[in-house]
Design a protein around this nucleic acid. Structure first.
Lengths: 189, 189
DNA sequence: TATTATATCAAACAACATGTTCGAAATGTA
DNA sequence: TACATTTCGAACATGTTGTTTGATATAATA
């Protein structure tokens, strides 16, 4: 499937640009970050940037998709393991919190107050899908109507996302498994 | 307290500018709205704008504060009335949904996908306060630790806000009281 | 290694947005 | 009416965006 070897320069350049973005988001907030900033910190020419990315949002999302793949892989693996242990309500929670904890800086940059709307939206949609998926797998919820499923999944996804953000901002001090426990306890379906 | 009569021109101008903003947010999204757009649609000179507002965010928030005062007044009134009727978990929900329903376009513009991060944050903080307030008034939750209160309030606020947004986007078709019922049912504390 | 392909670069560019300043004109207030 | 204040519009410096150019550097390949 992936036959074509990519020119090493392309990988190098894209890497430089992507890596330059994160610290800038952390320090200035996504909206305030200018393409010029990225250029300066990545030491890359203006025209080179536009050879690879359409604009700032494109850059952000391109890196984000990568991250998402890692994350979902991690979450699904861990979820399988924890399947047998306890009968928690939502299995995605702990692995996701773990992963967020390990990449705290990145997650805080993307999901925190300084992150952009775009990423927030995409990330939240992912959580909604995770919740929805587990609800459908659950026998108790299997007889939900479409609208009830919609409401329920957004309810729990919103709740989780909200807690996650507060936690990343440092306003909730807890270890991943502690926060997970709190979340699961509040989710008595 | 409010002795000084405000120059009619000021009220007129600020009104024109504020009113011009909302439809622009609806059509382009807040981030894409330019001050020049506002100037054109409000038929107001550039220097006049800066005589009243520091920048775009300032304009947005100035209108928002107004809205919030109305809203909280409405919510608190209605909450008192519904106090006796049923023992719902959260009393703020129905009045807030009602108010949002009556000003649907405005709410959708501010809280929806096209709204800005700033307003979202402020609005969400308001919901958090409402939830926290009711939790503290509830005898069952009175013995919560600070951190538990923090988690719990963000849990339910996030859940509510999430549903509210989906509802405003039209992806959940329901009347205010129906959505409220769904929310209350999911909130079995 | 030599050749070929293509990625990068710097520089310049037009288009646009921002925020400030100015005096003249319009409009409210008393 | 006379005065005070607001508005206007035009110009301005500054900064960002996205495109184009031909020269240069570097990777892939034979």
């Amino acid at each position: 499937m992936k036959n074509k070897k990519v020119d090493r320069r392309i990988l190098r350049t894209q890497g430089l640009i992507r890596k330059a973005l994160i610290p800038l988001i952390v320090s200035k907030g996504y909206d305030a970050v200018t393409i010029q900033d990225v250029l300066d910190h990545a030491n890359v020419g203006r025209s080179t940037f536009y050879a690879h990315f359409r604009d700032k949002d494109d850059l952000l999302l391109s890196g984000f998709d990568e991250l998402m793949n890692e994350l979902t892989a991690h979450v699904k693996n861990e979820s399988l393991e924890s399947q047998s242990k306890k009968k928690t309500v939502f299995k995605f929670s702990l692995p996701l919190l773990d992963h967020a904890n390990q990449n705290r800086l990145l997650f805080k940059a993307l999901l925190g107050n300084r992150g952009g709307v775009l990423v927030q939206k995409r990330a939240f949609e992912m959580v909604v899908e995770l919740v929805k998926h587990e609800l459908q797998a659950d026998e108790r919820s299997s007889k939900l109507s479409a609208i009830e499923l919609e409401i329920k999944s957004h309810f729990y996804a919103g709740a989780f996302f909200s807690i996650l953000k507060q936690w990343l901002e440092g306003r909730i001090k807890a270890l991943p498994h502690e926060l997970d426990l709190h979340f699961q306890n509040l989710c008595r379906i």
